[in-house]
């Protein structure tokens, strides 16, 4: 029996304590969105803003992204950037992004205050939009047993969780954050496993069929780069895929350049993707981006017994090797 886990009052109390601290400059959490059942990120700098914080199963965003993806405009001469801590709310999956960011030295453990959210699954906004095409909201989503309860525009409806839960949650092995300073609710026991069924089917097919599948997907891509921009791991100041010199790919939107883009993006996440699924969530063209990430994820786990974002002390996968690494394809 899974229930709504987070006590909003407790969340606000802790948030208030945290943002009141001298050494904290920002708290990143969730607040209600403006439309439908959406939640949106909240950037809390003052105690007065704490009241809007909330956590519901509609809090799909991985807030870890905002720890690394921000602009750095030039600062007035003689001043340096504010190095006070940032507090961030993370679900189990999101917490792995923090660990991976720490593996990649994006910041130190002491630079962040992690408010961990044990999570029993979030909704898939796309599925919800389909289910409630008319909902204007802003609405509420609650977890009650095996159902989600949606209330908006004066109406309340109960939907079996399985129908609207995000795919990634059905194979979540880390429902409780792997790293945190404060846990906002009791730990959630692991309730699912990952068997890679979603990619196994395609893996078995022939080259022509595989390519036919991907050709259709890639040709849809409009190169909005949303998948890259939302990714908590993609935070290079200058993405190589944008460069003109050297130019790895042209800007034109066609099957060749789109494919090159998707190969490059996925390869750059090999051994780094922590399976939060944000890339696919934001894709306006419904490209199954996670299937590519998961192919790498599966290979990395199988070949190197490596799982990114589970240990801040781990070395980056492609910066290490074992003398006995597999090499069956090498002549």
């Amino acid at each position: 029996m899974v229930e709504q886990l987070i006590d909003t009052d407790k969340l606000k109390k802790i948030a208030e304590e945290v943002i009141s601290r001298e050494d904290v400059r920002l708290l990143i959490g969730y607040r209600k969105g403006t439309f439908g059942f959406r939640m949106r990120p909240a950037f809390v700098e003052e105690v007065s803003e704490v009241g809007e914080l909330e956590f519901t199963p509609a809090c799909v965003n991985n807030l870890a992204t905002y720890l690394t993806n921000y602009e750095r405009p030039p600062l007035p001469r003689g001043t340096t950037n504010d190095t006070r801590k940032v507090a961030v709310m993370v679900k189990g999956c999101d917490s792995r992004a923090l660990l991976q960011q720490m593996v990649e030295l994006a910041y130190k453990r002491d630079d962040v205050i992690i408010l961990g959210i044990p999570c029993n699954g979030v909704i898939d906004p796309a599925k919800v939009d389909k289910r409630f095409p008319e909902a204007k909201g802003p609405g509420d989503v609650k977890r009650e047993g095996d159902n989600f309860t949606f209330s908006a525009d004066g109406k309340t409806e109960t939907v079996p969780a399985a129908e609207v839960i995000a795919d990634k949650c059905t194979r979540c092995r880390y429902p409780t954050p792997l790293v945190y300073d404060e846990l906002l609710a009791p730990e959630v026991e692991r309730f699912a496993d990952d068997t890679y069924e979603d990619i196994a089917g395609l893996e078995k097919r022939g080259s022509d069929e595989k390519w036919a599948y991907w050709e259709e997907k890639f040709s849809r891509c409009v190169r909005c780069y949303g998948c890259r921009n939302v990714c908590p791991m993609c935070y290079c100041d200058e993405c190589v895929l944008d460069r003109l010199s050297p130019q790895w790919m042209r800007r034109s939107v066609d099957i060749s350049e789109n494919t090159a883009y998707h190969i490059s993006r996925a390869y750059h996440l090999a051994g780094r993707c922590i399976q939060c699924g944000e890339c696919q969530r934001v894709c306006p063209m419904d490209i199954p981006i996670m299937e590519m990430n998961r192919k790498f994820y599966k290979d990395v786990a199988e070949f190197y017994e490596y799982e990114p974002g589970t240990d801040a002390e781990e070395k980056p996968l492609l910066s290490i090797f074992s003398v006995d690494d597999k090499e069956d394809f090498i002549l």
Binding site: W214, A270, D299, F303, L317, D325
Partner: peptide
């Protein structure tokens, strides 16, 4: 050794996209 890891992953991935090994 670094090359071996990188290519093993890339090759398997390209194969998954339908680029013949």
């Amino acid at each position: 050794y670094y090359a071996r890891r990188r290519f093993t992953l890339m090759r398997d991935f390209l194969e998954y996209l339908g680029v013949e090994p």
